[in-house]
């Protein structure tokens, strides 16, 4: 009961937030929602199933380009958004094939290679992608008379999708799929011994993770109204990795905490881009050295400490 109250208050605050934010801050919070969705996808692939993906920016980009290019063809946003996810997911399943044979550093390198190749395709195949300058003039959707064209309205659309993504990830993690992901992540051999097809579930882990990234991309393109290959480089994949590692791999809260820190941190601290990248790179090392569970354990400790004083909660 208290839990519902807590989340109700959080959502109410988030709904009221745009009234108090300036244009730019509103954009940063909106961007945080988009990145949260992508990071949730990576968390399913890497955090739960333990399959390294350093090409989530590719999946993200495929979703974004699907949206931008099909919108230009006059398709409806509501039809393209699932397609963004499906194209991202299909590509993810293809990328997942090497994971059947290779893991850890091999898989990391292979997925870096995938990201480099897709980046080159985005830059070079300008007949399709618009080349280095990308696609501009991307429109925002509407439902009947309700238009999401303004930054203010589009914020709410992103908020809804972000909440849906979080709920979907909770559902997946607790489903048969999620248990299979975790089993493979913990010990592949033992999982196979228990009749879990590592073939199916590894591909599925990539496909589902990439689906989230694709949907994120589909929401990203109308947010910026402009996309270019620079937004989908290997370095962006690295930022997604930083998000879930700092936040906490294999935890629902992980990608949310990570996206908030990585996207909003630089704005709050008013740092130059390179300066915050130093800080995050250092955090990646420090988290691996001293706090492998990520910042989510700080939350866990708080949660344990508070009910002890206020009275039991769960």
């Amino acid at each position: 009961m208290k839990r519902w109250l807590f989340w109700g208050v959080v959502i109410a605050i988030l709904c009221a937030l745009p009234r108090f934010l300036g244009d730019y801050t509103l954009y940063v919070v909106s961007l945080t929602y988009v990145y949260t969705i992508v990071a949730i996808g990576l968390n399913l692939t890497l955090g739960y199933a333990n399959q390294v993906s350093l090409c989530h920016a590719s999946f993200f980009g495929i979703g974004a380009y699907t949206m931008a290019l099909l919108l230009a063809q006059g398709w409806s946003f509501w039809l393209i958004l699932p397609l963004s996810g499906i194209f991202g997911g299909l590509f993810g399943a293809v990328v997942g094939f090497p994971a059947l044979k290779w893991k850890d550093h091999y898989l990391a390198l292979i997925t870096i290679a995938v990201n480099i190749i897709t980046f080159f395709v985005m830059v070079q195949e300008s007949w399709l992608t618009g080349g280095p300058t990308g696609v501009s003039g991307i429109s925002r959707p509407s439902i009947g008379s309700l238009s999401f064209a303004s930054d203010f309205n589009y914020y709410y659309l992103l908020l809804v999708f972000c909440i849906l993504a979080i709920l979907a990830s909770i559902w997946i993690v607790n489903s048969k799929w999620g248990r299979a992901f975790r089993a493979i992540g913990l010990n592949e051999l033992a999982a196979r011994g228990h009749g879990i097809s590592s073939f199916n579930y590894k591909l599925l882990a990539f496909a589902v993770g990439a689906f989230f990234a694709g949907v994120g991309g589909g929401l990203f393109a109308p947010l910026l109204r402009y996309i270019a290959p620079d937004a989908f480089t290997f370095f962006i994949s690295l930022e997604f990795l930083i998000m879930i590692v700092i936040g906490g791999m294999g935890r629902i809260e992980g990608p949310i905490i990570g996206a908030i820190i990585v996207v909003m941190g630089p704005e709050v601290l008013r740092m130059a881009e390179a300066a915050y990248l130093i800080v995050y790179s250092l955090m990646l090392i420090l988290v691996m050295l001293f706090m492998r569970e990520g910042l989510v354990i700080v939350l866990d400790r708080l949660r344990k400490a508070i009910p002890a004083r206020v009275g039991s909660r769960e």
Partner: peptide
Amino acid sequence: IATLGLSG
């Protein structure tokens, strides 16, 4: 992961 951090 840590050496990716180091490279950055």
